[in-house]
């Protein structure tokens, strides 16, 4: 084999092999990621090691909760718009703000009630873990935010900023 031909063969292999490796890596990564997040509830089944019958019950609860959640979101969005319109008109929408906060609180209460129902459909230990994980992921954000605001030095806390 001539030196040039050998060099060309090695060069082609050196270019081709990384390309094949990248294709295999990206392809498998996407496939696995898609498989893992196949539907809304696939994470629950894996994370809390649920049986098919438990999943069936939880799916019913989930499907029952979604329309209520959507309805609540619609009401909040509507009230939010009203508040924004009032602000644009130069009004101080005290009452509307109270109504908006009430709707948000109702929404959170409904969500917590749903978490409780779902946790009861799980084995007790998993249910407890589910409940604390959901509270951390949903309400935890607000608590962390509020705690951070509370820890702020008074000189740096300007109400007009938020």
């Amino acid at each position: 084999m001539s030196m040039n031909r050998a060099a060309r063969t090695v060069l082609v292999a050196a270019l081709l092999i990384p390309c094949v490796a990248v294709l295999a890596y990206v392809g498998t990564m996407r496939l696995c990621a898609r498989q893992m997040a196949a539907d809304d509830l696939s994470w629950l089944k894996r994370e809390f090691r649920l049986s098919d019958s438990e999943m069936q019950r939880i799916r019913q609860l989930h499907e029952g909760y979604l329309p209520k959640c959507r309805e609540m979101c619609g009401k909040i969005a509507e009230k939010q718009k009203e508040v924004e319109t009032s602000l644009l008109n130069g009004e101080v929408p005290d009452q509307k703000m109270v109504e908006l906060a009430t709707l948000r609180a109702q929404c959170q209460t409904q969500m917590l009630r749903h978490f409780q129902e779902v946790s009861q459909a799980m084995p007790p230990e998993q249910g407890k873990r589910y409940l604390s994980e959901m509270q951390r992921l949903t309400l935890g954000f607000h608590q962390t935010f509020e705690r951070a605001m509370g820890d702020m030095p008074s000189s740096g806390h300007v109400h007009g900023d938020h």
Binding site: A24, T28, L31, Q35, M36, A37, R46
Partner: peptide, 20 residues
């Protein structure tokens, strides 16, 4: 490469599934 991709995909997929 596929093994490494699968491991990475499972990690990101787990996170995506939880977020979903």
């Amino acid at each position: 490469a596929a093994g490494a991709g699968a491991m990475r995909g499972m990690r990101t997929g787990e996170q995506d599934a939880r977020d979903r």
